[in-house]
Simulated assay, not measured.
Amino acid sequence: MAGLIAPLERKYGWSLAERAGEDCPDGMQRLLNSADWDADTVRDDVRDFVVETIGDSNAVLIGDDTGFLKKGIRSAGVQRQYTGTAGRTENCQIGTFLAYASTKGRALIDRELYLPASWTDDRARCRAAGIEDDVPFATKIEHFRAMLQRALDAKVPFAWVTADEAYGQVKTLRFWLEERRVAHVPATKVNDTVITTGGADARVDQLIAALPRQAWKRLGAGPGAHGQRIYDWARVPIRIYRENGFGHWVLARRSVSDPTEIAHYVCYGPADTRLTDLARIAGARWQVEECFQTAKNECGLDHYQVRRYQAWYRHITLSMAALACLTAIRAHELAKGAPDPTAAA
């Protein structure tokens, strides 16, 4: 872990071993491949540490996936598939992650490796990569839901869940969250439909298009690389359940420079939720991208040279632990009133 946060150009077996004063990478490789430790238990420790250092009852849980470009066909889960990391179809692995974001900082607290059906339908290939026969095919949505359930079971303090449209457009996920009274602001596709108060289906873009001009408010959606992210925002109430104090809205984010560029969200939360609150939660989704960027650039998240299923989880978990460490240091310095150590990055 010290090596993962060290200023090394590449953080793989040889470079980490050399920094630790070892003559060969055997020790580092053994740690990831055959040493006796449980990556899921360490994952839980990382999550608990994140909650201890930046936990907040108003925090946001964010789901997203990221790609790890690979060569060859032997690494667990690798195949040609679309990844937003490259913006195209590439030979890669896909990891699904859960991020935790509060006013004190942000970090990754859970992870799953996506195994395409081409892998789970070929058990011999799975065994060669260390994937047990009882590991089933699971979609990224199922991974997201499982990670959220682990956070709920662990009583992680948070107020909202958000994700991009790949997750938000899935009605079964939204219903699953609503069943558990988990407030959420996921993005969705332009032609998604929702059930209105009268029980009829309506397209989200048509509901937003019917709004008067004065319904739009210019609001910040959180800081970005070039300052505050400013957009025009509007919402349409769909259903408000006064008996349990929750409601549904369709939310829209419109570009200031190009009014034809509109993103849509399906929201569920306390009935007294304000437009500014929904805009803030929708804007929080970008923090998972910042987690990926920091984890890859500073903590070696994508520097691994392992092929086996268990080794992937071990490396990723230790990189998440390194990111949590940096997050805690930053939060501690900011609490003392010191300048943001990441501001120049």
Rank of each mutant, 00 (worst) to 15 (best):
P116S: 09
A129E: 00
F292Y: 13
A295V: 08
P223V: 08
W37T: 10
G95M: 04
K11N: 04
I208E: 01
P157Q: 08
V170S: 03
A187T: 02
D48W: 04
T66F: 06
V306M: 09
D134T: 13
V250R: 02
Y309R: 04
F137P: 01
A335L: 08
T260W: 03
E142F: 01
W249C: 07
E243S: 15
E261V: 11
A128D: 12
D40A: 14
V170C: 07
A2R: 08
L278D: 00
I281M: 03
Y241S: 15
A159C: 08
V236H: 10
V60H: 06
A151K: 03
P339Q: 10
T276D: 12
R308D: 14
R253L: 07
A101V: 12
A107Q: 04
N244I: 14
I94K: 00
Q169T: 15
R229V: 07
C267L: 04
A328M: 13
L318D: 03
V46L: 12
D121N: 13
V156Q: 02
A221R: 00
H248K: 11
V50K: 03
T342H: 11
D133F: 04
R330P: 02
A86P: 01
G247E: 09
N58L: 08
I240T: 13
V51P: 00
R280P: 00
R47P: 09
Q305V: 11
Q169E: 12
L219W: 03
G269P: 02
G168N: 03
Q214W: 01
K104L: 15
Y82V: 10
R254P: 07
A321L: 15
A128K: 13
L177W: 11
L278K: 00
G198E: 12
T188G: 06
A76R: 03
L31I: 14
W233L: 03
L318R: 05
P341S: 12
G77A: 01
R145E: 09
G224K: 07
G95N: 05
A35M: 10
G198T: 10
R145Q: 12
W286S: 02
Q214T: 05
A295Y: 02
R242N: 12
A344N: 12
D302G: 06
R123H: 11
R47E: 13
D48Q: 14
S255L: 09
G199N: 06
H264R: 01
N191C: 05
D277M: 05
H226P: 00
C126E: 04
L177H: 11
R308K: 14
Q79F: 03
A343F: 07
W216E: 00
W216F: 07
M147I: 03
A151E: 01
A138L: 03
N244C: 14
D153V: 04
Y82Q: 09
Q169A: 11
F49K: 07
S34R: 15
G13R: 02
R10M: 00
V250P: 01
